[in-house]
Write a protein that binds this DNA or RNA. Structure first.
Length: 589
RNA sequence: GGACUCAUAGCAUAACUGGAUAGUGCACUUGACUACGGAUCAGGAGGUUGGGGGUUCGAAUCCCUCUGAGUUCACCA
């Protein structure tokens, strides 16, 4: 049991014996003591005043006395207003340090039985990945790693959007203007090549619109009647009719794109247990429409279109199937939800999609709930904010995007330049150096993205490169390599629990003891950002200790042994935390 | 128009979900290199938490209201 849980119990017992009141554990709030005050943990006593019938100060003092009676490891207490600050003995902390189990720290005491599926990435095959996708991928991957670390059995899946009118646009533009260019002949990645033709389509399409407008058509009519868009629509129909030539072109171009995506995924360090393709799932869900109709949950309009009334949930009416019987976005998402459950049987299903689709997922989850799906309660939309550029929102058609491959290459180049300036890579092979530049560059990028609360939109200025100093990934890596350097020169020895702790040691051990709580909270909130901010704090706390007390140079053997134990544990927690974020922890840098 | 987000120092962000004097980094500034690894550490300056009201012992956090930004709303997924 961790310290807080222990304290909580004690507080409960103490309140019972002092005031003869059985208190709801939720009323007991225990926090780390604000560093400006004396103490390790703080109990908020305001909620107890109601039945203690005493002032907050008196109540706190009585509680403090009582707690110390039953817990000798609480060696001191002080009261400021309604805050009861408790100081734990140094030997308590050293004992904790001595007995901590590296193989279980941070993980659930009882491994959760539930299985979790995380769907993320969901790229379109008509354009390369950009900064927005990077946020999606990093979030999806690290949430999955976080849950896995905590103890859940997790699966990662990717639903690729490989069909539809937008894909046909690229296909058509390639057919028209491509001259049988290939990724090899053009010397670019397949996804970039196809992305180029998506932009070409847009340019040509706009030209056509303009000439139609000049010929006297309204803008709306021009958009609908431009030959290119009509041809793209025709191509989509051919594709749906499974026409040989169209399907062959579609397959060829998609293969190129997948090869490109795989490269990007590898560099990003993300992976998937299974790929779903919309070309295979887009017809799903029609039987669910029937099911809903027969259950009386859905209704038909005169034109035969199918709807659901969600006015009670303030979600309005929503179209589920067109009058001609073809499916819409919602139709296939209902189908894929069932499919994923059939394939993996997960109790929790997390889907990582931008917050522009908040409404869509509210509706989807509400429908699956009404249909009585067993997994409905475990559905969660991990909604994240858009990544804005100083110039506004990224738009791939207009070319105002930060390309994922370019950005990663730039980060790695920055890391290389910085590392070479510092000149600490003597004796490393070229391969080791390149791995290091990659580790550092990606750490900077990943930490930069993941430290921000997922739900918030974030601003990224491509002109200002991501820092390598301060509150950054490389800072944490650097702290780690420093500890590793020390540990390489140290010998193993036991913790001596009879020693006094320096302030910086006590601060560090307090933070270390919080790792489990942070992971738990991150799991509850699906937020890797909490882990990111925590390991930064931890690295900072260690660096302070490093600057203030001797470690290897400590003459007192007992103290030195304890400090080595601090080093070992800190290194372990830092590495675990970085791992959750998908960041490598190099031995040297 | 309806629904949903968001607003914290020049910039980027945190605040244990209602707790103490709102933390941190970048940039600016002062100091610590005969270093257990300076991608570090210590200090300074920078805030009416968009404005106004309310609830509370206590509000960046909850409620109301303005202002501003964004997303979404029936056939692109």
């Amino acid at each position: 049991m961790n310290t807080e849980a222990h304290l909580e119990n004690s507080v409960k017992e103490a309140l019972k014996s002092l005031f003869e009141t059985e208190i709801d554990p939720k009323q007991i709030k225990i926090e780390l003591t604000n560093p400006d005050f004396e103490g390790d943990f703080t109990v908020l006593v305001f909620p107890f005043v109601r039945f203690s019938k005493k002032s907050p100060e008196e109540t706190a003092d009585m509680l403090g006395q009582e707690l110390r009676k039953s817990n000798p490891w609480i060696i001191n207490h002080n009261v400021i207003k309604g805050f009861l600050n408790l100081s734990l003995s140094h030997s308590y902390w050293l004992d904790w340090l001595k007995n901590v189990d590296l193989s279980t720290i941070g993980k659930a005491e009882n491994k959760p039985a539930e299985k979790v599926i995380v769907e993320y990435s969901s790229p379109n095959t008509n354009k390369p990945l950009h900064l927005g996708h990077i946020r999606n991928n990093l979030l999806g991957y690290s949430v999955s790693e976080l849950l896995q670390f905590y103890g859940y059995d997790t699966k990662k899946v990717n639903l690729v959007n490989d069909r539809g009118i937008h894909i046909c646009k690229s296909m058509l533009a390639y057919q028209r203007f491509g001259n049988d260019e290939t990724p090899e002949s053009a010397g670019v990645k397949g996804d970039h090549l196809i992305g180029k033709y998506y932009v070409v389509f847009d340019l040509e399409y706009k030209k056509e619109i303009q000439s139609l407008i000049d010929a006297g058509l309204s803008e709306d009519d021009a958009k609908k009647q431009a030959p290119l868009i009509l041809e793209a629509q025709a191509m989509l129909q051919k594709w749906e009719a499974n026409e040989t030539e169209t399907v062959a072109l579609w397959k060829k171009l998609n293969e190129w794109v997948y090869a490109g995506f795989n490269e990007t995924y590898t560099t990003l360090g993300v992976s998937f247990d299974k790929f779903y393709y919309e070309s295979e799932t887009y017809l799903l869900g029609k039987d669910i429409v029937q099911e809903g109709l027969s259950k009386g949950l859905f209704y038909k309009k005169e034109d035969d279109s199918v709807w659901i009334d969600l006015e009670k949930e303030k979600l309005d009416h929503k179209l589920l199937q067109r009058g001609d019987g073809t499916s819409v976005y919602m139709t296939q998402d209902m189908g894929t939800a069932d499919l994923k459950y059939k394939d993996f049987g997960c109790d929790k299903s997390i889907i990582v999609v931008g917050n522009e689709q908040d409404y869509h997922f509210k509706v989807l989850f509400s429908i699956m709930d009404k249909l009585g799906r067993p997994y409905a309660k475990g559905n969660y939309h991990l909604s994240y904010g858009m990544v804005d550029l100083p110039s506004g929102k990224m738009k791939s058609r207009e070319g105002t995007v930060v390309d994922a491959d370019d950005l990663m290459a730039e980060m790695i180049a920055d890391a290389k330049e910085k590392t070479e300036t510092l000149g600490k890579t003597d004796g490393m092979s070229e391969a080791e150096k390149n791995q290091l530049y990659y580790d550092i560059g990606m750490a900077a990028l990943k930490y930069f993205i993941l430290k921000v609360d997922p739900s918030k939109r974030m601003l990224f200025d491509p002109k200002e490169s991501i820092d390598l100093q301060g509150d950054t990934g490389p800072f944490i890596q650097y702290s780690y390599t420093r500890i590793r350097s020390i540990l390489r020169q140290a010998e193993n020895s036991e913790v001596h629990t009879d020693q006094a702790l320096e302030t910086s040691e006590r601060n560090l051990v307090l933070l270390l003891s919080q790792f489990g709580n942070v992971v738990k909270k991150g799991v509850d909130q699906y937020s890797p950002a909490l882990v990111a901010n925590y390991i930064y704090e931890l690295a900072r706390s260690f660096n302070k200790l490093y600057a203030e007390v001797p470690l290897l140079k400590e003459m007192d053997e007992a103290k030195k042994a304890n400090r080595m134990a601090f080093c070992t544990l800190t290194a372990h927690v830092l590495k675990s935390g970085l791992g959750i974020l998908g960041i490598n922890a190099p031995e040297r840098m």
